[in-house]
Amino acid sequence: MNQILFKEQLSPEVFRMRIRAPLIAEERQPGQFVILQLDTEFGERIPLTIADADPAEGSITLIFQAVGKSTKLLGQMQVGDKIANLVGPLGRPTHIAKFGTVVCVGGGIGVAPLYPIAQGMKRAGNRLIMVIGARTKELVILEKEMRAIADEVIICTDDGSYGRQGLVTVPLKELCERAPKPDLAVAIGPPVMMKFCALTTKPYAVPTVVSLNTIMVDGTGMCGGCRVTVGGKTKFVCVDGPEFDGHQVDFDQMIQRLGSYREQEKLAAAGCQLHGEAVQKGLQE
């Protein structure tokens, strides 16, 4: 169980892993996530969205950015290693239906959880437009996979090293101005990106779904650490979400809550990096 079957480094900080998890592979649906923990006694529990699954192989695919202590440690793990604890699929699945034209906007690593949703939307008979955003060319992920299913693909990079230069909100606005305008937008990426995608689509009344990745402990509704304000009401991302109406989410508050432990996280990640470098050095010697 939980064995790493395949590992690929997509960019300096981004990894793709296939992990043996037959039950999760069988039950998961687009929009759902897992929680993993690398050490049963002292590890933290971190939520990661499921990028893909292969029920025949009994595996799920995770794509993650090694930014915190645990994701950095995960990035150092190798094929054959086992993840101590992996639980899922968690959260409510995406509402997949035939809407008409669906625009999927993915920013950075957010393209990963968007992939199963895009697949589902395409399969349901929607016209699929894909907008992929990244800081720079080498951080663009899943382009080939998305091109294989999308009717139209637009790529934006902040530095203009690939596709159009600029933010994803520019093409998103253009799409909203087209006639007919999209019937649904799904935006997944950094909180700031989701916030501005929702602000972009709002004047055009294009329904916009966002998927939130907040701080969680149990992921089953017990702790309430993941709470966000949606439409003036407190909601739990783990059992009420992770997807919400982007026009209703209080993103500013969510961004503040995501920073709850910034200081501790920085220290922990730095410690991990030192540890990782020491290990690497040890291996070289």
Binding site: V217, C223, G224, G225, T229, Q256, S260
Partner: peptide
């Protein structure tokens, strides 16, 4: 078992530093 922690629905409850006892 017990489920979702209750909150008081008062101003400021989602500030950083506010916890449910469960959490």
């Amino acid at each position: 078992g017990a489920g979702l922690p209750k909150f008081m629905n008062i101003e400021g409850e989602n500030l950083v530093g506010v916890y449910s006892a469960n959490e």
